[in-house]
């Protein structure tokens, strides 16, 4: 078990390194292919008023003329140990983990990201709780009443849920529940109150994004749970549980659902990992200042350090979620031996 975890952790680091090399490569090469020079890149740091000479010196000092590998090395070292940036006018120290400086704001990327993380965490985890409960419950009921009106209605709604894009359901929900209609239950998006400041406001501001995001995922989970339950409820061990004289409720929850839970767990880990990297559409629709919104803004402004920072953080969450899922697998299913 311990060797397994160590091996997986080593793999996680290798994976992240590969991801960082690829993203770095892309972000290094793409602007140049589009005609950018070291100078034009440096110019974005030193500002438009600087002379050509100043820009050239800055480009040198910022290392834009070094070979690709050296630049990557510096970037990687920055993440691990921190780095100093010399703009010409002054040297700024960027403590580890340093993902570089924003072209636009001249602020280091990492603290920015850490500001945004709580928003995305709140959104993703809150929505996850809702979609798991709603999705699994719907799936179980559908499976138990296969072919009933409830089943057909629920699966119809679920189909709509997986098909409709967030920006559609999001905007519809905003129109219906927010902008001054009789159904108004929440403020229009754009505001986020940290949990430790005011939990009630926190939830109040997030309820619509939660539901919108959860609807999309709950639909998929309902379908998955239904399929899993239909399969496990046909297993021999369910018949054994009934033959023991267990109540139907106990048969379904303790024996059936427990058996159907493993694939759901896998998907859940991956979904949550992906979302933690930024629920792009939801955050944009509701103007929530999370990682996804941050990424969108960075892309629109061609702020490469920001884009790279957010990409790496997202990759970290996915790799990490994968590891947790595999470890949980061994907890949920005793037949799985990690080794």
């Amino acid at each position: 078990m311990v060797t397994y975890i160590i091996r997986r952790l080593i793999w996680a680091v290798v994976m992240l390194t590969i991801v960082s090399i690829i993203t770095f490569g892309i972000f290094f090469l793409v602007p140049r292919l589009a005609g950018a020079t070291s100078e034009s890149l440096a110019a974005r740091y030193v500002g438009r008023t600087a002379s050509a000479e100043q820009v050239k010196i800055a480009a040198d000092k910022l290392g834009f003329n070094d070979p690709l590998i050296v630049q990557y090395g510096r970037f990687a070292k920055g993440i691990v140990a921190g780095a100093d940036y010399d703009y010409g006018p002054g040297v700024e120290h960027c403590p580890a983990p340093c993902f570089g400086y924003s072209f636009l704001t001249r602020l280091p990327v990492w603290p920015d990201l850490m500001d945004r993380l709580p928003v995305t965490l709140s959104l993703a985890i809150g929505a996850a709780v809702i979609w798991v409960i709603a999705g699994v419950a719907t799936g179980v009921l559908s499976a138990l009443r296969r072919g009933s009106l409830f089943d057909r209605a629920a699966m119809g709604v679920a189909l709509a849920g997986v098909s409709l894009p967030i920006f559609f359901t999001g905007i519809v929900s905003l129109v219906v529940f927010s902008y001054g209609t009789p159904f108004r239950i929440t403020a229009p998006g754009g505001s986020f109150t940290p949990f430790d400041e005011n939990p009630a406001m926190w939830a109040y501001n997030l309820i619509l994004p939660w539901i919108t995001l959860a609807f999309l995922y709950a639909a998929g989970y309902a379908r998955l749970t239904r399929a899993g339950m239909l399969e496990t409820m046909n297993e021999d061990y369910i018949r054994t549980a009934r033959a023991k004289g267990l109540s139907e409720r106990r048969v379904v929850v303790k024996h059936g659902l427990r058996g159907a839970l493993t694939p759901i767990l896998t998907i859940f880990g991956l979904d949550l990992g992906l979302l933690l990297g930024g629920a792009v559409l939801t955050e944009s629709t509701y103007s929530l200042p999370g990682m996804g919104k941050y990424a969108i803004d960075a892309i629109t402004n061609q702020d490469l350090p920001k884009v790279m920072g957010v990409t790496l953080v997202a990759a970290f969450f996915v790799v990490f979620a994968n590891l947790i899922v595999d470890l949980l697998y061994a907890v949920v299913d005793p037949r799985v031996r990690l080794g």
Partner: peptide, 15 residues
């Protein structure tokens, strides 16, 4: 009344 099934591997809950 109790019952014993054919395949004890699938008839017992694996978890």
């Amino acid at each position: 009344m109790a019952m014993i099934f054919q395949d004890p591997l699938s008839a017992m809950h694996p978890f």
